Amino acid sequence: MSDATTDPQARLTHDQVLEAGLDDWRKVLDRLKARFRTGDFATGVALVDRIGAAADEADHHPDVSLTYPEVIVTLSSHDVGGITSRDIDLARRISGFAAELGAEADTSGLTELEPALDTSGDGRLGDFYAALLGAESGPGGVVDASGQVPAVWFQTPPGPDDPRGAELPPQDPEQRWHLDVWVPHDEGERRLAAVLAAGGRLVSDAEAPSYWVVEDADGNRSCICTPLDRG
């Protein structure tokens, strides 16, 4: 094993996460994410109890969402801003608990949402949106540590000579917000197909499979993003 896959302080690449063989889990944005179909609330509570005990034992705590039919678990090493061997180890234990309880893993539809605002990116709007959302302003955007609202980031729109905009037809100047919808590496094309079947239009696939630019019937654009081809 490489030093990165055993060093608890080293961020893992997407390829290293795939090599770990976590069939129940997917890398979405900078997090490991899994959904376990419990079928009833009692099984979900039992799974959460086991996750909590293992997390305390490891001193490494995931975000857990419990609803009637499922438990969604998100793992990330916040101190390094990504996925480490600590997340891999805890993910394996959680998958074991789910299997023992008969909760079936389902990776379809796993998603992380990032609203993005086209602006100068100089931080002048950060304090406003932090106050509005009850969050904190940081480099490049706004983050809510409690997880109640998604992170908001500020993107400098491409200028006329920027290659990022070379493949895109002109955008409605009134649209400044867009959604970056992050999905697992094996979900991007399926999500794109669903969007097109629902009446959406493909604006550009020049950066696929890293991301596809799509728009709705009114011309409002969003991006379907994956971790592929990102270095």
Rank of each mutant, 00 (worst) to 15 (best):
S2I: 03
A4H: 05
T5D: 00
T6V: 12
D7R: 02
P8L: 11
H14A: 06
H14Y: 06
D15Y: 01
V17W: 00
V17Q: 04
E19H: 04
A20P: 05
V28P: 01
R31H: 15
L32C: 02
A34F: 04
F36W: 00
G39K: 01
G39M: 03
T43L: 05
G44T: 07
V45N: 05
R50P: 03
G52S: 11
G52D: 09
A54M: 01
A54G: 04
A58N: 08
H60Y: 03
P62T: 00
S65P: 00
L66R: 02
T67I: 10
P69G: 02
I72S: 11
I72H: 13
L75Y: 03
S76H: 08
S77H: 11
S77L: 09
S77R: 12
H78M: 11
H78A: 14
T84R: 10
D87M: 10
D87K: 12
D89W: 04
R93N: 07
A99P: 06
L101E: 00
L101W: 03
G102R: 12
E104K: 14
D106L: 06
G109N: 03
L117H: 04
T119R: 12
S120Y: 06
S120T: 15
L125Q: 11
G126V: 13
G126W: 03
D127P: 01
D127I: 11
F128I: 11
Y129P: 01
G134S: 01
G138S: 14
G138T: 14
V143Q: 14
F154D: 09
P157H: 00
G159S: 08
P160C: 05
D162I: 12
D162H: 09
D162W: 07
R164I: 07
E167F: 13
P169F: 09
P170G: 09
R176P: 01
R176I: 10
W177D: 06
W182A: 09
P184H: 02
H185S: 15
D186Y: 09
D186S: 10
D186F: 12
E187Q: 15
G188H: 04
R191I: 14
A193T: 13
G199S: 07
G200C: 04
D205L: 04
D205R: 14
E207N: 13
E207Y: 13
W212L: 12
V213G: 03
V214T: 10
A217L: 13
S222F: 12
C225K: 02
T226E: 02
L228K: 03
G231V: 13
